[in-house]
Amino acid sequence: MSYLAKNLTSGARELIAFRIGDQEFCVNIMSVREIRGWTPATPMPHAPSYVLGVINLRGAVLPIIDLSARLGMKPAEPTVRHVIIVTQVKSKIVGLLVEAVSDILTIRDEDIQPTPDMTSEFERTFARGVLAIEKRMICLIELEAVFPQTESEAA
Protein backbone atom coordinates (compact mmCIF):
# COMPACT_ATOMS: atom_id res chain seq x y z
CA MET A 1 0.00 0.00 0.00
CA SER A 2 2.67 2.47 1.04
CA TYR A 3 4.64 1.36 -1.96
CA LEU A 4 1.79 2.15 -4.29
CA ALA A 5 1.30 5.51 -2.68
CA LYS A 6 4.95 6.32 -3.11
CA ASN A 7 4.72 5.25 -6.72
CA LEU A 8 1.86 7.57 -7.36
CA THR A 9 3.15 10.59 -5.55
CA SER A 10 6.80 10.76 -6.45
CA GLY A 11 6.52 9.79 -10.12
CA ALA A 12 8.52 6.68 -9.35
CA ARG A 13 8.22 3.70 -11.66
CA GLU A 14 9.33 0.12 -11.73
CA LEU A 15 11.32 -1.40 -14.53
CA ILE A 16 12.41 -4.91 -15.35
CA ALA A 17 16.07 -5.10 -16.37
CA PHE A 18 17.47 -7.95 -18.45
CA ARG A 19 20.66 -8.97 -20.14
CA ILE A 20 21.49 -9.55 -23.79
CA GLY A 21 25.19 -10.38 -24.26
CA ASP A 22 27.15 -7.90 -22.16
CA GLN A 23 24.50 -5.18 -22.33
CA GLU A 24 21.60 -4.42 -20.02
CA PHE A 25 18.19 -3.16 -21.07
CA CYS A 26 14.94 -2.51 -19.28
CA VAL A 27 11.22 -2.09 -19.96
CA ASN A 28 8.38 -0.71 -17.87
CA ILE A 29 7.07 -3.41 -15.56
CA MET A 30 3.51 -2.33 -16.34
CA SER A 31 3.89 -3.73 -19.85
CA VAL A 32 5.12 -7.11 -18.64
CA ARG A 33 2.50 -9.85 -18.30
CA GLU A 34 4.73 -12.70 -17.24
CA ILE A 35 8.17 -14.21 -17.59
CA ARG A 36 8.56 -17.78 -18.74
CA GLY A 37 11.19 -20.21 -19.89
CA TRP A 38 12.06 -20.79 -23.50
CA THR A 39 10.04 -23.30 -25.49
CA PRO A 40 10.69 -24.02 -29.13
CA ALA A 41 8.68 -21.76 -31.45
CA THR A 42 6.98 -22.69 -34.69
CA PRO A 43 8.77 -20.79 -37.45
CA MET A 44 6.77 -18.47 -39.64
CA PRO A 45 7.27 -18.27 -43.37
CA HIS A 46 8.42 -14.96 -44.77
CA ALA A 47 8.92 -13.53 -41.31
CA PRO A 48 11.68 -11.04 -40.55
CA SER A 49 14.73 -12.85 -39.20
CA TYR A 50 14.20 -11.52 -35.68
CA VAL A 51 10.79 -13.22 -35.46
CA LEU A 52 11.62 -16.67 -34.13
CA GLY A 53 8.10 -17.96 -34.65
CA VAL A 54 4.97 -18.46 -32.57
CA ILE A 55 4.27 -20.37 -29.38
CA ASN A 56 1.10 -21.42 -27.57
CA LEU A 57 0.45 -19.30 -24.52
CA ARG A 58 -2.59 -20.91 -22.90
CA GLY A 59 -4.51 -21.05 -26.13
CA ALA A 60 -3.30 -17.81 -27.65
CA VAL A 61 -0.80 -17.70 -30.48
CA LEU A 62 2.12 -15.58 -29.36
CA PRO A 63 4.92 -14.37 -31.65
CA ILE A 64 8.46 -14.53 -30.18
CA ILE A 65 10.97 -11.84 -31.00
CA ASP A 66 14.68 -12.37 -30.68
CA LEU A 67 15.35 -9.03 -29.03
CA SER A 68 19.07 -9.31 -29.70
CA ALA A 69 18.49 -9.58 -33.45
CA ARG A 70 15.73 -6.99 -33.27
CA LEU A 71 18.15 -4.48 -31.76
CA GLY A 72 20.62 -5.16 -34.52
CA MET A 73 22.93 -7.38 -32.49
CA LYS A 74 24.01 -10.99 -32.92
CA PRO A 75 21.01 -13.36 -33.38
CA ALA A 76 20.39 -15.43 -30.26
CA GLU A 77 20.90 -19.15 -30.06
CA PRO A 78 18.08 -20.01 -27.66
CA THR A 79 18.82 -22.46 -24.84
CA VAL A 80 16.78 -23.66 -21.90
CA ARG A 81 18.39 -20.91 -19.83
CA HIS A 82 16.94 -18.18 -22.03
CA VAL A 83 13.73 -16.53 -20.87
CA ILE A 84 10.74 -15.04 -22.64
CA ILE A 85 9.37 -11.76 -21.30
CA VAL A 86 5.72 -11.67 -22.27
CA THR A 87 4.83 -8.05 -22.93
CA GLN A 88 1.71 -6.26 -23.99
CA VAL A 89 1.34 -3.07 -25.97
CA LYS A 90 -2.26 -2.06 -26.62
CA SER A 91 -4.12 -5.24 -27.52
CA LYS A 92 -1.16 -7.20 -28.86
CA ILE A 93 0.93 -9.58 -26.82
CA VAL A 94 4.47 -10.45 -27.85
CA GLY A 95 7.20 -12.52 -26.22
CA LEU A 96 10.72 -11.11 -26.09
CA LEU A 97 13.57 -13.61 -25.95
CA VAL A 98 16.39 -12.40 -23.68
CA GLU A 99 19.30 -14.15 -21.95
CA ALA A 100 18.26 -13.47 -18.37
CA VAL A 101 16.30 -11.11 -16.20
CA SER A 102 18.79 -9.24 -14.05
CA ASP A 103 16.95 -6.82 -11.83
CA ILE A 104 13.81 -5.02 -10.85
CA LEU A 105 14.49 -1.31 -10.56
CA THR A 106 12.53 1.44 -8.90
CA ILE A 107 13.46 4.74 -10.42
CA ARG A 108 12.11 8.25 -10.72
CA ASP A 109 11.51 9.91 -14.06
CA GLU A 110 14.41 12.29 -13.57
CA ASP A 111 16.78 9.31 -13.30
CA ILE A 112 16.26 8.69 -16.99
CA GLN A 113 18.93 10.46 -19.02
CA PRO A 114 18.45 11.27 -22.67
CA THR A 115 20.21 8.96 -25.06
CA PRO A 116 23.63 10.34 -25.98
CA ASP A 117 23.53 12.21 -29.25
CA MET A 118 24.30 9.50 -31.72
CA THR A 119 22.86 9.08 -35.14
CA SER A 120 22.51 5.34 -35.33
CA GLU A 121 19.22 3.86 -36.40
CA PHE A 122 19.09 1.80 -33.24
CA GLU A 123 19.25 4.78 -30.89
CA ARG A 124 16.56 6.69 -32.68
CA THR A 125 14.17 3.80 -33.03
CA PHE A 126 14.40 1.73 -29.89
CA ALA A 127 16.04 3.66 -27.05
CA ARG A 128 14.00 6.00 -24.93
CA GLY A 129 16.81 6.88 -22.55
CA VAL A 130 19.58 5.48 -20.39
CA LEU A 131 19.89 4.88 -16.67
CA ALA A 132 23.01 4.91 -14.62
CA ILE A 133 22.63 2.49 -11.72
CA GLU A 134 25.55 1.37 -9.58
CA LYS A 135 28.01 2.12 -12.37
CA ARG A 136 25.96 0.02 -14.79
CA MET A 137 24.40 1.52 -17.84
CA ILE A 138 20.89 0.29 -18.61
CA CYS A 139 19.05 1.23 -21.77
CA LEU A 140 15.29 1.83 -21.53
CA ILE A 141 13.60 0.17 -24.50
CA GLU A 142 10.66 1.64 -26.39
CA LEU A 143 8.48 -1.45 -26.53
CA GLU A 144 6.14 -0.30 -29.23
CA ALA A 145 9.05 0.13 -31.64
CA VAL A 146 10.16 -3.43 -30.96
CA PHE A 147 6.84 -5.01 -31.88
CA PRO A 148 6.87 -6.35 -35.42
CA GLN A 149 3.70 -4.69 -36.69
CA THR A 150 4.92 -1.23 -35.87
CA GLU A 151 8.04 -1.76 -37.92
CA SER A 152 6.45 -1.08 -41.28
CA GLU A 153 4.89 2.11 -39.97
CA ALA A 154 8.21 3.33 -38.67
CA ALA A 155 10.00 2.44 -41.87
Partner: peptide, 21 residues
Protein backbone atom coordinates in the same frame (compact mmCIF):
# COMPACT_ATOMS: atom_id res chain seq x y z
CA UNK B 1 -4.49 -11.11 -33.02
CA UNK B 2 -0.89 -10.75 -31.89
CA UNK B 3 0.99 -10.80 -35.14
CA UNK B 4 0.12 -9.97 -38.73
CA UNK B 5 -1.27 -11.73 -41.74
CA UNK B 6 1.25 -14.13 -43.20
CA UNK B 7 1.09 -14.77 -46.94
CA UNK B 8 0.35 -18.40 -47.68
CA UNK B 9 -0.91 -19.04 -44.15
CA UNK B 10 -4.62 -18.89 -43.33
CA UNK B 11 -4.41 -19.17 -39.55
CA UNK B 12 -2.79 -21.18 -36.79
CA UNK B 13 -3.88 -23.98 -34.53
CA UNK B 14 -2.57 -25.76 -31.47
CA UNK B 15 -1.85 -29.43 -31.79
CA UNK B 16 -1.94 -32.20 -29.24
CA UNK B 17 1.67 -31.64 -28.21
CA UNK B 18 0.80 -28.08 -27.25
CA UNK B 19 2.76 -26.59 -30.12
CA UNK B 20 1.45 -24.16 -32.68
CA UNK B 21 0.94 -25.47 -36.20
Amino acid sequence: ANYTHVPGIAAATILGDGRVA
